[in-house]
């Protein structure tokens, strides 16, 4: 089991939930993974298509009323232990959509968030910094 924890701690898989984001943060997340200049895979991470394979969840968007239940359902499908990262100011505080009638957020009202990466959108290096912090937490939780 310790060998498994050692190996898994070095290769967390990322899963991305768009909770009503404007797509800006999602573009930066794609950039972080796909462009060799940033290359998040150096940290042992990779994006996966199913929440059931994920270890670190990256949530973007202010959690709109319309998408809230689906996003929370999706988050609940990620097996424990998991690390939640709020990417962009929207899930952290609501950003420019704060106190809007159409949003249910901030995200930490509904689920425990571990790392915040503020920015609108955060630059790829900031996202890498946030993911590096999340990997430290993930290694402790295993």
């Amino acid at each position: 089991m310790t060998l498994f924890a050692h190996l898994a701690g070095r290769s967390p898989w990322l899963y991305r939930i768009n909770a009503g984001s404007c797509n800006g943060c999602d573009v930066e997340l794609a950039t972080t993974a796909c462009i060799p200049r940033y290359d998040v895979e150096r940290l042992g991470c990779r994006y996966c298509g199913s929440p059931r394979h994920a270890d670190i969840v990256l949530v973007t968007g202010p959690l709109t009323i319309r998408v809230k239940d689906k996003a929370l359902h999706l988050w609940a499908e990620v097996p424990d232990p998991k690390v939640t990262v709020a990417v962009g100011v929207c899930p952290i505080s609501g950003g420019v959509f704060r106190e809007s009638y159409a949003i249910a957020g901030p995200l930490d009202r509904f689920i425990p968030v571990d790392v915040n990466v503020p920015g609108c959108p955060p630059r790829p290096q900031a996202i890498i910094e946030g993911i590096a912090k999340a990997i430290e937490i993930w290694a402790q939780r295993l």
């Binding site: 952290i92 571990d114 790392v115 955060p122 937490i137």
Partner: peptide, 14 residues
């Protein structure tokens, strides 16, 4: 300065 990523405990200290 863009080093703003922080753990949740520091959310309201930023």
């Amino acid at each position: 300065d863009w080093h703003l990523a922080h753990p949740q405990a520091e959310k309201f200290h930023l």
